[in-house]
Design a protein around this nucleic acid. Structure first.
Lengths: 232, 232
DNA sequence: TGGCCAATATTGTTGAACAATCTGTGATTC
DNA sequence: GAATCACAGATTGTTCAACAATATTGGCCA
């Protein structure tokens, strides 16, 4: 039938496929937070029926990647102050828990070290995106210590929401460079088996990161409301 | 959480409505684990279109209340050994984390005490379902200490899955009476501010509960395969 | 009995239609 | 001139009927 615009979408599971396409585009910042996903244009663009698209929407709503307002449509989620607080509430629980009670095999520790090295290289070469990636990878790997797919999934969702937060900020300053050394320390402590100290340090790190992010976000919101005032 | 009267489908949000109806029926054990949810009969029974029902299905799949096998249909989830392990992997992380780092206000402590009292009364009157309810309520309340809606939601899903496990067991012996005293101790420790000890005890409790549940489940599976053999 | 194949049933997806709701525009009124 | 209201257009929510693709069933044959 109609081969979708962007390439090879076979008869695997159209719904899941569409959901994945949208997920990817949102994560890439191609679809910016707050923007509306109108059904008809998207149907045409993706080459699927409206019904299938709506089913994909329900999937993404369940992942809170997207927000549905009844009779108004679905919008790319645009996390604000409260969402950021919630993100850090989650992280402050599951990350230190993983550090305290996760399974620390030598291979896993090697993996963590590889990631922090990547982060250091990214910092040295001044690549902010690479640093962000490495940072997220590290914290994802920390949660993976739990061995729980559900917690890993929750963390993935949280990290995806974090990316949305960064996308919604016009100026994303080097939010991550400060924290590379902290991550090095964290992995070092894990290697040394100092779980208690690692967990404490991690909680302190998360507190600071949240505070800093909230400041940036507040400034961003002020800037935005000011622009709105100027425009109106 | 308002349970809508089982009447005619209103023009509110049919999809969400249907999802909630199915959720309730599954939680009540009306739809037993492993049973197939055929589209046409359900459409007729619920008075909705096949498309709407399928959309409700995707919601429930996202909550892993239900399993979808491509081209075969959706089935009520029937958690087995691996799912139980995963349940306790999650609980062993987030419950002790909540105990260690959650916010302990006097009101919340009062609430916890009310729940354990309810559990004690249920044990005294020998009501297993009431005991199970109180037990789940307590552990839900513990996770609520985190203040995080996401973690609360994850815990709710986990507890719902636990109910499915119990539903799938023909004989559900007094799995909970052993643990009432432990919960009393837990709340007492929280009241005393002995978080470290509370977390330790909670982890030990979860280990034991998991082991016992796995034994029951193993016996159940043996019984079942034996019956299958006898029948075939 | 055991395996193969066609007939049947079920799922996955589409397209068009309709009711319900929202949005924006212009007319009316003060 | 600003606020209010009504109406037409657009969008969403849901249904129905159809079709392709896949699974299941039953019969047939060896």
């Amino acid at each position: 039938m109609n081969t979708p615009a962007d390439g090879t979408a076979e008869h695997a599971h159209t719904t899941a496929w569409i959901a994945s396409v949208l997920r990817t585009r949102i994560a890439a910042g191609e679809l910016t937070p707050g923007s509306k996903l109108s059904e008809e244009p998207l149907c045409a663009a993706l080459g699927v029926s409206r019904n299938t698209l709506r089913q994909a929407f329900t999937t993404l709503v369940g992942e809170s990647i997207v927000t549905r307002i009844p009779n108004r449509g679905v919008f790319v989620a645009s996390p604000g102050v409260e969402e950021v607080r919630e993100i850090y509430r989650v992280r402050r629980m599951i990350e230190p828990a993983a550090v305290l009670w996760g399974e620390l095999t030598p291979q896993v520790l090697d993996g963590l070290e590889t990631i922090v090295e990547r982060a250091q290289q990214a910092r040295d070469s001044g690549s902010v995106p690479a640093m962000a990636d490495a940072n997220q990878a590290l914290h994802g790997a920390v949660v993976a210590l739990t061995g729980s797919a559900s917690l890993q999934e929750l963390m993935d969702r949280v990290l995806a929401e974090m990316r949305l937060v960064f996308h919604s900020m016009a100026s994303a300053p080097d939010f991550h460079s400060h924290y590379v050394d902290r991550n090095v320390t964290l992995v070092k402590q894990l290697r040394a088996g100092e779980r208690q100290e690692a967990a404490e340090g991690l909680r302190a790190y998360l507190d600071e990161a949240e505070a800093e992010l909230l400041v940036h976000l507040g400034a961003e919101q002020d800037r935005r409301s000011e622009m709105r005032q100027r425009a109106g």
